[in-house]
Computed example of a mutant assay.
Amino acid sequence: MNEIASVDQLWHSIHREAEIALARDPVFGASLSSTILDHPDFAGALAHRIGARLGRSAADRARFAQLATDAFASSPDLIDAASRDLQCIAVHDPAKTTLLPPLLNFKGYVALQAFRVSNWLWRRGRNDLALLMQSLSSDQLQVSIHPSASIGTSVFLDHATGIIIGAFAVIGDDVTILQNVTIGRKTSEPDRAPKIGSGVYLGGGSTIIGSVSVGDFAKIGAGAVVEHDVPAGCTAVGIPARLANCLEPDASA
């Protein structure tokens, strides 16, 4: 999928994939009715998915699904962001070219959309409920994103286990974050949180800590610990991180 499809086009593709899956494997397909086929649109299916992954009881699942439904109705931009996030998986994950499997099975995708709902709550002063959603996402999905963070679109949480994104962190568009990544502050001041540019790749186990700016299209290597700025287009590797593929290859990160 090389071009960004509209939400309606995306939903048509997902619905068609579900129908094909049902015809191919009726046993698997039986679960697709409540998950996909019974819903009138992408927002309804996604709200159901959030409720199903966060809720520990039928009542909780219904409650969180309704909460997501309310958020999507109030802020359609959340659904546009969710559409872009899902489409970017088909672009960046070599194992997936279709949309249904990541919607059904990728917990990082659901965790990111749950964050978008919690951020919607946070911006409306419903902080306790927003933090509850963060806690449930951490417990159920192993992804903890503080609701005060800011995250762009077309973001991919790959493998999505052990990801921590702290309060007031800023993440741009088209960012890929692998497992066990930590992005957080050293102090309590909001302006001391990391700022991650667009097109950035954060390798597994990397840590970005403090008042750090990571420039557009930079790459952070697996296990790197970044405590200083990384210019746009550079690669940071090691502990402490050092810069590579830059004009100043020996500079420290």
Rank of each mutant, 00 (worst) to 15 (best):
D174S: 05
L131K: 07
F168Q: 11
I183F: 00
L99K: 09
T97C: 05
D80Q: 14
L129Y: 01
D80P: 13
D77V: 03
L99V: 07
Q140A: 08
L104T: 06
R84S: 10
K96Y: 14
S83T: 09
F106V: 13
G152H: 05
I171P: 10
S137Y: 04
P102E: 03
L129V: 01
A71L: 09
L112S: 00
T98V: 12
I151V: 12
A114K: 03
I164C: 04
D93V: 15
V143P: 00
V110S: 02
T161R: 08
D85C: 00
L129A: 02
F106A: 14
H146E: 06
L141C: 02
A71G: 09
I151P: 07
F156S: 00
V175M: 10
S148K: 05
S150Y: 13
M133S: 02
S148D: 07
P101A: 12
V181A: 01
D85H: 01
P147T: 04
F106L: 14
F106G: 09
F168Y: 12
S148N: 10
A149N: 04
V110R: 00
I89F: 14
P94M: 10
V181R: 02
F168K: 11
T161M: 12
A114T: 07
L141T: 03
P94A: 06
P94H: 06
L99D: 10
D93N: 13
C88P: 04
A169S: 11
L178M: 14
G172D: 08
D93R: 15
S150I: 11
T69Y: 09
R126G: 13
S188G: 12
I145K: 00
S83V: 06
V143C: 01
D174I: 03
V170H: 08
A90Q: 05
P94I: 04
A73Q: 12
T187D: 01
G108M: 02
Q134Y: 02
R84L: 11
R126F: 12
L103E: 13
T161F: 09
S138K: 03
H92D: 06
D158Q: 15
A90C: 11
T69R: 07
A73V: 13
R123S: 15
W122F: 10
G184V: 01
A130E: 09
F106N: 15
F72T: 12
P102H: 03
Q113H: 05
G172L: 07
V110H: 01
T182W: 08
R124Y: 14
N127C: 11
D174T: 02
K186Y: 00
I163P: 11
V117Q: 06
I171R: 06
L141I: 04
I89Q: 13
I164K: 04
I145W: 01
G184I: 00
P102L: 04
P101N: 15
V155I: 04
